[in-house]
């Protein structure tokens, strides 16, 4: 069957969709799956997609036997599940009825420009709430909830601020966890909260990479060994940075 749109344009929208998904924290196997589906819905042959957390390669073959390859290098990642779900919906729409690439591009830029549902203050407050909840889950009493609420919320705020100032990796985590450790120590000293350890663990839950460790295991189990190991290494270094921040505080007690 004759191709309706040029292959290069289709590969372009595939890469753009993959960029949006990776930037917003989709797992690598999901990105590969979605890109494969988008390319498949335009009836391309010999599709190969390779995704690691820092790069994306796609190669397809056009009708004339010519191969088209594009490589994308990824740097920054954050998590925005709404955008991931929107790209997912788009790929399903395309599977039903392939749209012209120009229109898909428009839809993708709409997705990119969708504002977040919550303001920064709301996000920080909810992180503080989560930190308060975690102290109870880790066996704390009601005495530890409020200190962790304050320390966790301020710590996460500081983390976001420092992350905007500098691009040195893992520096923001270290500064924020150092701050959390100091604040928790002061709280316990003045009798506001009892168990220092519980307060610290609850407060750093907004920074620790628990999600990344689980995701890396899911990648490993899906057979994406490279992506899994890469994510695991990053998670361990992040946990190390937080551990250093807290250990510095506790060393001088």
């Amino acid at each position: 069957m004759q191709q309706q749109y040029t292959v290069a344009k289709i590969v372009d929208i595939c890469v753009e969709a993959g960029r949006v998904m990776l930037e917003n924290g989709a797992e690598t196997y999901r990105v590969e799956d979605t890109l494969y589906r988008i390319a498949k819905s335009y009836r391309l042959e010999n599709i190969n997609v390779f995704v690691v957390p820092t790069a994306l390669i796609i190669t397809v073959q056009g009708d004339d036997g010519q191969d088209y390859t594009e490589l994308l290098r990824m740097n920054d990642r954050n998590t925005n599940l709404e955008k991931v779900s929107m790209v997912n919906d788009l790929s399903r729409q395309l599977a039903r009825k392939p749209l012209p690439p120009k229109k898909v591009r428009e839809k993708l830029s709409n997705i990119i420009n969708t504002p977040t549902n919550f303001t920064r203050l709301q996000r920080n407050l909810s992180m503080a709430l989560a930190c308060g909840g975690f102290t109870l889950l880790f066996g704390g009493s009601y005495m530890e909830v409020l200190p962790a609420f304050i320390a966790g919320g301020l710590g996460h705020y500081l983390f976001e601020v420092v992350k905007n100032w500098t691009n040195v990796s893992f520096f923001a985590e270290m500064v924020a966890s150092f701050f959390i450790g100091m604040l928790s120590f002061v709280f316990v000293r003045i009798g506001f909260g009892l168990d220092l350890n519980i307060i610290i663990i609850g407060s750093v839950m907004s920074l620790v990479p628990g999600m990344a460790i689980t995701n890396s295991f899911r990648d490993l189990m899906a057979g994406h060994l490279l992506a899994g190991v890469a994510v695991l290494a990053k998670a361990l270094i992040t946990a190390g940075a937080i551990g250093i921040g807290i250990a510095i505080v506790l060393a001088f007690l």
């Binding site: 925005n80 549902n117 919550f118 989560a130 975690f134």
Partner: peptide, 19 residues
């Protein structure tokens, strides 16, 4: 525990910008 886990999940929902 139910409420604590509920609140913790809720916080991360807002952080991850869930619909």
């Amino acid at each position: 525990y139910f409420l604590a886990a509920f609140v913790a999940t809720f916080g991360f929902c807002v952080m991850y910008n869930v619909p």
